Simulated scan of single mutants.
Amino acid sequence: MTTANGTTMTIGGSSRVQYGALQSVTAFKVTEPRLTQPVSAADPAGTGIFQKCFNVILYYRALVEGETGWAFSGWIKESLGRAFTEQPLLCGRLRRGEDGSGGELEIVSNDSGARLIEARIGMTLDEFLGSERRADGETELVHWKDIDEQNPQFCPLFYILVTNFQCGGYSIGISCSLLLADPISTINLIKRWATIHNDLNLIPGVNAPRKPIFNLSNTKHGDSPVTSLAPSPCPKTIQTVVFKVDAVDAKASGELSKVLALLCVEEAEKKLKNKMGPKFALLVKEESGNVKAECVEKSGAVQARSEMATTEVNLESLGLSGVAFRRGNEPALVSQWVASGDGFVMVVPCGGSDGGMPGFNVFVTIPRE
């Protein structure tokens, strides 16, 4: 619901998240030349590509007196901008054709920026983490707004929501369109961002707090209505299993991607004891970076090749639990999930260039029954 003091959202029936400030974060320097990433989809709305995103929440306790999420939001703007300089498409927009009015979809690095939102919640961090309804409340600690199918060029593809708890602790909620990056790539981006942040020494030592250059604390957070930020729901109503598939001599062709998808859907259904449904959306990230989306019939003629070796990947083991934006202050908890209204599969090439075994990461998302 919306109040005169801004946009508020109910968590667990009582406490509320209230938006207080909105900024844009762009790459640290102008992106030249512009980069583009084609998105091929015969039926974009039917595949649901405008709604799918990956969410991460990192919870931090205040390490020193006076450390808050408000100050953190100011400190991270420079380090995040430098991280975006290495991956400028994250600051870009999805558009249709060269003139933006029709044709094929593409993502262009036009430096429009990610959205950085500051908020607060009327409870302590420990109260929230200890709540029986934490899983439901977490959907309010990330911000995502579905891409407008008709006017995608105005819609951010990357959001950061910093929420202040009453105790001084805070959470960092990150939402990234799956058209931009798969979950593992997003995790690696967050780790790289934290490394850049610490290398810049933006946050002073425990005995020398200072005000960040982009701090908005001179304004009263929440006194100015921020009513245009009504998010799209990010329900945790689905389950995702990740597989690494070894395929040394293969490239992500259309046929192979379907083979991988069907193989991994079968494995995921056994693990989760849930069924995908008669058809699902398939997103394929090619080695060039291009994205293709299509609907696949689960009972299609393509047969999964049993000789392909599949290994389950545990996203929780990929290092986010050790990500510290102030050295020594690691997350009290990390939560991550794929947000989608329906089941889908994402196939992404991995390994080979860095000495690892070439193959594919396959993300299988199945709705809970």
Rank of each mutant, 00 (worst) to 15 (best):
I187V: 11
I196P: 00
G254Q: 11
L80F: 10
F165W: 12
G319D: 06
G341F: 04
G351P: 06
L320S: 00
L63N: 10
V242D: 00
G103P: 14
N361R: 12
L125T: 14
G355P: 12
V362G: 11
G74W: 03
W193P: 00
I238Y: 01
P367W: 00
V265K: 00
E286F: 06
A62G: 12
T186Q: 04
F72R: 06
N151C: 13
V291Q: 05
V30F: 08
P204F: 09
F128I: 07
G356T: 04
E286I: 06
S171Q: 07
T68L: 01
E149W: 11
V206E: 13
V313N: 00
G277C: 04
P235I: 00
E369T: 13
F54T: 06
S40C: 11
G12Q: 09
L216A: 13
L178F: 01
G46R: 08
S340C: 10
E32F: 15
G12P: 05
T85H: 07
M1R: 15
R96Q: 13
F84M: 07
A194T: 07
V348H: 10
I147N: 05
E294S: 13
G322M: 12
N55K: 04
K191V: 06
Q336K: 09
S321Q: 05
P358N: 09
A332K: 09
S321E: 05
S15W: 04
G130C: 09
